[in-house]
Design a protein around this nucleic acid. Structure first.
Lengths: 339, 339
DNA sequence: CTGAAAGCGCTTACAG
DNA sequence: CTGAAAGCGCTTACAG
């Protein structure tokens, strides 16, 4: 079949040790034998076996990445970032779709352990103590992306969710809106749910706008959930002039619900999303949204993990900047009559 | 660090051979020693090392998957399908983003070879002879998804692009449209470009509608390209009543362009897309489109590859059915005045 | 039912 | 500058 290091050693008439040395750029051979070895490698079409190398080096140069849902645009962008820097550093990435299922996640973690991955990236879900435990037992570095955890020895890369939601709300307030609704995740979700509600509430408070809890709805971060939430909201509280949806898919759902109810966006209803997926740009009308640098977050996570692998040193968490991308779903309200 | 098979052998007082046997469910030990071995495994938290196993078995239980763009919704859906059946069969999947770059693809193929993957799935791009050659040299099975090739020993999973485009055009024709435009890929693209143009043309021909080549535009399968193509089209040929866009992203672009030009969809312009991404459903108005079962295609590709791995036998290609999903971007034109 | 030994394809002290 | 040998953690004939 494929030739091995033995074959090239035999062909050149040297030991496998020397072949290994020239292949790994270690010192210890003449220019002449180097030339001969390289030539034999060429002629035989020899390719090193990374599995064998991995066994002795105890390094496989592969990392495992866990997503709650690999097919979401959100995850894909992060994956793209991760893959891109991984490949620059000659690392392979194994993708795992946990489907937000504990059993499945655990099973995957076992698999990654057996496969001897060098490190793990865990994306956008809650890092259960149980997960953290296995990873710790594996003794490989772990980095979180688009999430954080209660374990302060595990670094994360994310945006400041609370502040981002605060900014979104304030953006609307500054444009004259006061009857503002929000569609978010579960209030119990301490990563992407609660913090965004909190930021939103704080912004209203800081601007002296009374909180109306019935204007906060859980859309479960999906289009369908967003649709239902939006319909509930728009029919129950038709006086609302703006809604902040804490995910672009839910914001699009608001636009769809509005269309169905004959409410014009942005003329009668302003909408701001969260994430800035490609979707936001493709929306009709194009969606104003809070951008998270997802791809960059993936890249940074990957870079950080590889740095930990190279240095053995722990890494620090990082909060990346968000920003509001203005498109066409927000209308500034005319100033109210003065006092 | 982690315990090895030796550790459990020592702990139980048997040879590593017996431990290996019970772990692999091979015959050759008493119920009693089996019990003791399993207990020791439990106590030591022993996990087999798949790398070591892979070295001797010459099977890594991992497959490599190549995408032109991992972050597109299109690829993500296929990936999701692939990953899902792979994980059922205890295979891992390594994702590779070729960025449609030959050099990069070759580099990845080398990497996959060194990593000793058991098989490869190549998605939605042109399989260059050069690529096929390396894969052949690796001596591992290859399956194509959302593409096909000139090499008839490599199985593919796809939809009948020509027929799908034919059906889309006919769908429009049956609803009274005669001035129909198409936005497709490059005419030189023999996978997703040319066949769809052909199917479209054939439908017009079969229905006695004269072909107007200026109504066929290349949108490069992207939103931005589709936007430019749509703007060209809609301003140059305002008499067009319908457009078939051979990708949902381009169809959404048509809707965006129409909105910009004040053309109402579907009242003044009907649009049908291709793919049926989540996007189509989220569009405003929701997009009527030709659905490809992308996730299922990924699943089937995965299943087929694993079957080849298990049986060693070659597999047959498969054409999966497409279907038109009717949503709200097509209007039936009133019947023209009779002769 | 069980073990000793060879071997998978590499790398790496060690000795010369 | 170079090679013999041990070893990474397994599996698998072979022999008993």
């Amino acid at each position: 079949m494929s030739s091995t290091i033995k074959d090239v050693a035999k062909k050149v008439g040297v030991s496998v040790a020397t072949v290994s040395r020239v292949l790994n750029n270690l010192p210890g051979y003449s220019e002449d034998t180097k030339r001969k070895v390289l030539q034999a490698v060429e002629e035989l079409g020899y390719q090193p076996n990374a599995i064998a190398r991995g066994l002795v080096n105890k390094r496989t140069e592969t990392i495992g990445v866990l997503f709650p849902s690999v097919s979401s645009s959100f995850s894909s962008l992060i994956l793209h970032g991760i893959e891109s820097v991984a490949q620059e550093h000659n690392y392979s990435v194994i993708v795992c779709n946990t489907a937000e299922d504990g059993k499945r996640t655990m099973k995957y973690l076992q698999l990654l352990r057996e496969k001897q991955v060098d490190g793990i990236i865990f994306s956008s879900g809650l890092l259960e103590p149980e997960y953290n435990e296995v990873v710790r037992a594996m003794n490989v570095p772990l980095v979180l992306v688009a999430t954080k955890s209660e374990f302060d020895d595990v670094p994360y890369i994310k945006v400041d969710d609370r502040q981002a939601a605060y900014d979104a709300a304030e953006y609307l307030i500054r444009r004259g809106h006061r009857r503002i609704a929000m569609i978010g995740g579960a209030e119990s979700d301490r990563i992407a749910g609660q913090p965004r509600y909190e930021g939103f509430r704080q912004a209203l408070r800081d601007h002296g706008i009374p909180l109306r809890e019935e204007l906060m709805q859980d859309g479960g971060f999906t289009f369908d959930g967003g649709l239902r939430a939006a319909e509930r909201l728009l029919t129950a509280a038709p006086d609302v002039t703006a809604v902040f949806a804490a995910a672009d898919e839910m914001a699009i759902a608001v636009i769809s619900a509005a269309a169905k109810l004959g409410i014009a966006v942005p003329e009668q209803l302003s909408v701001v999303g969260y994430d800035d997926l490609k979707l936001a740009e493709m929306s009709n009308p194009p969606l104003t949204t809070v951008a998270q640098p997802l791809r960059e977050m993936g890249e940074l996570a990957s870079r950080k993990l590889i740095a930990m692998l190279d240095s053995g040193a722990p890494a620090a968490s990082e909060i990346l900047p968000h920003r509001i991308i203005e498109r066409q779903t927000v209308r500034a309200l005319p100033a109210p009559p003065g006092p």
